[in-house]
Amino acid sequence: MNLEHLPSTSPSLSRLIDELNKLPGIGPKSAQRLAYHIIRLPAEEALALAEAITDVKQSVGFCQRCQNLADASICPICADSRRNQEQICVVEDPLDVLALERTHCYRGLYHVLHGVISPLNGVGPEQLKLKELLTRLEGGQVKELIIATNATLEGEATAMYIRRHLAGRAVKVSHLAWGLPVGGSLEYADELTLSRAFQGRQEI
């Protein structure tokens, strides 16, 4: 079988290459390689991949509380009564929840914004899951909101916006510490990171 000539002779393969090419980080060459790899797979493995994609699109939705991706209407973290119901950690996207869960040091709940305020890209507060966050705070059960947006300009803008909106409410608003990463060196740190690391220094 001469695979070089397949795209023009097989419309279904061309279609698969086109679809794979739409994925992030996949260029035309990678798309071709993946498509040929799928063709060479045993039928059951290729169908399992197709089934997984169909399944994920049909069953995964947003958790009604934290807006994280979940199979059920309430995600396992929100449904876990052993977790601290008085703390909510606000993150930009679902991958941040995974990163924080890997630390095993936070036992509260989360809220996923699904983005950050980005004035230059025309993304405003109304495009984020902020209304849902304010609704969660209405019950009065939440005592602390921990803002864990990325330490980028847009992440900071989002954090400042949330803090501004919660001014006067009986909820403590904190932010993850800014400072030097493990393995980082002072010599190459930018002045903003260093000054904030100084402000947030701790007694040892």
Binding site: L120, A151, T152, L153, P181, G183, G184, Y188, A189, D190, L192, T193
Partner: peptide, 12 residues
């Protein structure tokens, strides 16, 4: 996070 450029190339 470990990049020497991180923090030096933020807007503004």
């Amino acid at each position: 996070v470990s990049s020497r450029l991180v923090g030096h190339l933020e807007p503004l």
